[in-house]
């Protein structure tokens, strides 16, 4: 049940609803329209970064992207610098941010797929370069760091009660789910992850597929960082750091297995909502960062063990 393509999201949504009910019982008012809209906003960011991990983990070879945090920061700072608070330049900022993300992703992908560097090492190393470069850039150039009013509006406002970030996420999620499960490219990605030798011998350009996976991850991470700048109001060093751990957690909970070959983004999106509700509940009952970290780690372990059991049964 939990292993099937619908069972996982259903289970995660059921858990989310259970958490919401518990929250309402413990703290009356936990389920309010405003509350839920706010949580969707937060979940949207987590969901975007979860997409990055979904794609690279599915590509196999111990895939992982530990540079999503650094790329998000890059996207935010570069975007903010270019738009310099003007609405007109917002689109330029967005394009530049995503372009930079794609570029870093390209380097990651080349290192992993062409040179054969383990993804963990490659993405960690590149993230330290990007972080270091950002320190230099920010210190020397003192670029503008404020989000334009338009971006703030996009990231903060709601449309008929639905936060517009959540709408953007829903759009991207729809495209992602279609691309990963209903397109030839998605199949190529998953088969490359599951068995790169068979995939290659069957005519897949496995190197290209893997490089594209890392580029996609970089592009989405940079977009996430750019939107995050609008949500927070300004870009700063370390903007995306918190998402490195959490993105991997939601991917694993959503049903992506580290062995590669599976890209169930529907599950990952539900996991992003679940974890957001969990965190907000924990925050609401005054649990600090410490408790959240512990619960994150334990939740991840529990889901890993469930998946392990399911894998062993088959």
């Amino acid at each position: 049940m939990i292993g099937s393509s619908w069972g996982r999201p259903a289970l995660l949504l059921a858990l989310t609803i259970a958490l919401l009910v518990v929250g309402q019982l413990v703290l009356p008012g936990f389920i309010g329209l405003g509350q839920i809209a706010n949580q969707l906003k937060i979940a949207a960011f987590l969901g975007l970064f979860g997409l990055c991990q979904t794609v690279v983990i599915a590509a196999g070879g111990q895939g992982l992207d530990l540079s999503v945090g650094a790329i998000a920061t890059l996207g935010g700072i570069l975007g903010a610098a270019l738009m310099a608070g003007s609405n007109a330049m917002t689109i330029v900022g967005a394009v530049a941010a995503v372009g930079a993300g794609l570029g870093v992703g390209l380097l990651n992908g080349m290192g992993v797929a062409v040179l054969g560097v383990p993804p963990l090492v490659m993405t960690l190393a590149l993230s330290s370069v990007v972080d270091g470069g950002l320190i230099v850039g920010v210190s020397l150039a003192h670029p503008a760091d404020a989000a334009s009013p338009g971006l703030v509006a996009i990231a903060g406002r709601s449309l008929y009660g639905v936060p517009s970030v959540a709408l953007i996420w829903a759009g991207i999620a729809a495209i992602a789910i279609w691309l990963l499960s209903r397109s030839a490219w998605g199949r190529q990605l998953c088969r490359t992850g599951a068995n790169p030798v068979t995939a290659r011998l069957s005519g897949t350009h496995t190197v290209r597929v893997r490089v594209m996976a890392y580029m996609l991850s970089g592009g989405v991470a940079a977009l996430g960082g750019f939107l995050l700048t609008g949500y927070v109001g300004q870009a700063f060093l370390g903007l995306g750091n918190a998402y490195v751990l959490t993105s991997i957690v939601v991917a694993a909970i959503g049903g992506v297995t580290l062995a590669g070959g599976k890209a169930p983004y529907g599950g990952v999106a539900c996991a992003a909502i679940l974890m957001t509700v969990l965190v907000s509940l924990l925050t609401a009952i005054n649990m600090g960062e410490n408790g959240r970290q512990i619960i994150f780690g334990l939740t991840l372990l529990v889901f890993l063990m469930i998946d392990r059991r399911l894998g062993a049964q088959r």
Binding site: S183, A184, W185, R187, Q188, S202, G203
Partner: peptide, 14 residues
């Protein structure tokens, strides 16, 4: 069907 998928001319479809 995989060979057809791997050689797909329009990889965004299935």
């Amino acid at each position: 069907g995989y060979v057809k998928i791997a050689l797909a001319k329009r990889p965004w479809t299935l």
